[in-house]
Design a protein around this nucleic acid. Structure first.
Lengths: 356, 356
DNA sequence: GCGTTAAATTGGATCGATCCAAAAACCCAA
DNA sequence: TTGGGTTTTTGGATCGATCCAATTTAACGC
């Protein structure tokens, strides 16, 4: 090693020890606290000083140590999210990805946990809050009488849900997709294409989501003055969807069917194929999963990137501005979008009529 | 409030301030360090003392603050995992869930990150390591000439990959599923059922995973003395799978087809249905995705819970015992299992022959 | 030029654990 | 009883940031 230059700035050899507030302060000739202020409350610092400090920060590649910050402030920049068992749920997958991105934009990270039951989840909350200092939680799969959000509220943990609280309790902000609007649009589109006998393949009535989507279909039918045949309702599996489809086809078969999910829609398609009438009945699914896309199935697409963006925003705002616990409640309902594919434009019903 | 009892143990009213090492120590009448030893190095503590301290720990519900531990030791008990863009990949979904569980058993948590490219991922590493102090990383989607593991190795970050390094570089432990064995078993099963002309619908040759799976089919055919027709290779989408299927059917159609993935298999099924011969050709997929299951498609199931378990074990061992960086390298290859469903037992070929 | 107020900056204490070296307690043979 | 060697226990320093109160500097009106 020669001498010169390296004297005062002996900072970054091959693998420098991480820069700290102190090392930056020393090199910039100011105090620790001033450097901190430059990063957190710049309005308190004289512009010239700030500029000089910024310079050194860049030079040393300084990044505040999160563990120290967390120890002092109790904030971790971690957001908890429960990941569920296998449901082959591409929706959750996409949401997870979008949420990770949205959170990262504000320098938060997603930390995962699992739990076999909702009750177990409450135990997990305590662990996550007490030991991991998570700043907030995103809840999914909300349902009537959900105890989870109440528990979080009493513990004072910020939370947002993806999914409405289906009862009247509204002690937290939420974001959801307007399923009813989705099926309504789908139904209207089918009506506009000339369909009159349109069926609905839904879920059992204990599902609020299912009932909501069913309502959209019903509404569109009513507004068009069309007769609402009784929907067929089955569990969300391909097999039970097929039995439902069979039942529907046996009694005055519809010319089009709106389905509460892609799985149901695929069951419908499968049954049609098995019965030897592959095309001729228009079908629309819900979720726009990749299988739906690759099967040429029209489907209602949930705007998951937007949902995740709103979730992140609402939650982080709540975390960073812990004022007015109840005042700033927001409920956001996003409209999904119908993706039209071959399945809802059967060749025998709609020749390429309207081009715009 | 009356008096009595509460005098010395005035510890846990409605919402006690979290217990700390100090508060436990004070109540137990020992020093801070002794409590720490009880938790981390019990063999240094006299049994009676340990018992007394444990008592207090339970009584106060003490849990060590991770931020403090992290600040002092630089360990965070966080494991990084990149989540990829939408590929409708149910495999990753299941792996993610299993990994979260496996890590939690040893008190580690999964923290997610995203990155549009492998190069960007390297930037993400630095951030994750420097600021978040992550203890290790699980890499997926390894490929030939993967720069990521090398970078981690030079930075000294423990890592394990789910997926072999397909070149000879082996500077890290890895866990993978033996695709070749899977397709081989599938092919052998078809041969045992009486099939002789068995095709393979694969991926383009630049995919090491695809080539590996193809090799299993080839091997089984050779060992049975059967003729290996040239495989048809297409990208992993339903549409291109269908064109591949068409090509395969046009030239001396096989009686059975082993497919490199469920997506390809579904394309095969779709094409068969479209051509009006829905049953009659046996088909086996790979991944055992939910759509495969619900379509009655036989498929090779990857033991993802086991894979995740091994990943967690190898990584955490490496984290906690940073000895012998290269000595303890492990390569674990797990055999997948064929799940037989209707698609590989077409009624015209295999009447329920062998019951055992 | 000087007191008064506002703007900038500073140093010490703190969060809650671990590291480390030294002290205390204990055991046993000489 | 005492000294050497273990086994247990202890208190102070430390990780790297923020909180807080105090101090220095700048600005301004008269």
């Amino acid at each position: 090693m020669t001498d010169a230059t390296a004297a005062t700035t002996a900072a970054a050899p091959v693998s420098a020890p991480r820069a700290t507030l102190d090392s930056v302060a020393k090199l910039a000739g100011v105090s620790r606290q001033t450097v901190s202020n430059v990063m957190n409350t710049p309005q308190l610092v004289k512009p010239e000083t700030a500029e000089r400090v910024q310079q050194v920060i860049r030079q040393l590649g300084y990044r505040p140590n999160l563990a120290a910050k967390r120890l002092r402030t109790g904030q971790s920049r971690l957001i908890g999210l429960r990941i569920f068992g296998v449901d082959g749920d591409a929706v959750f997958d996409r949401f997870l990805h979008a949420l990770t991105d949205a959170a990262a934009l504000r320098d938060y990270r997603i930390i995962l946990y699992t739990s076999p039951t909702d009750e177990g989840e409450i135990g997990a909350f305590d662990e996550l809050v007490d030991r991991w200092d998570i700043d907030g939680i995103v809840l999914t799969s909300t349902h009537r009488g959900d105890v989870r959000s109440d528990h979080l509220a009493t513990r004072g943990v910020p939370c947002v849900t993806f999914g409405r609280p289906w009862d009247d309790s509204a002690r937290h902000s939420w974001v959801d997709v307007d399923g009813r609007a989705g099926t309504k649009t789908a139904t209207e589109t089918l009506i506009a294409a000339g369909h009159r006998r349109i069926g609905f393949l839904g879920w059992p009535l204990d599902s609020d989501v299912g009932t909501d989507r069913e309502a959209g279909w019903r509404e569109a039918m009513r507004e068009a003055g069309l007769d609402c045949r009784e929907p067929v309702r089955r569990d969300n599996t391909l097999d039970s969807a097929r039995t439902g489809a069979r039942e529907m086809l046996n009694t005055e078969a519809p010319t089009a069917v709106v389905c509460v999910s892609d799985v149901m829609a695929l069951g419908m398609v499968a049954e049609l194929a098995a019965e030897g009438r592959p095309t001729g009945i228009a079908i629309v699914g819900f979720d726009n999963s990749t299988v739906a896309a690759s099967n040429g199935l029209s489907s209602v697409d949930q705007p998951l990137v937007a949902v995740a963006g709103h979730c992140a925003r609402l939650l982080i705002d709540q975390i960073e501005r812990p004022t007015s616990s109840t005042a700033a409640l927001e409920r956001i309902l996003l409209a999904p979008k119908l993706i039209s594919r071959a399945s809802s434009r059967p060749p025998d019903l709609s020749p390429p009529a309207n081009s715009p």
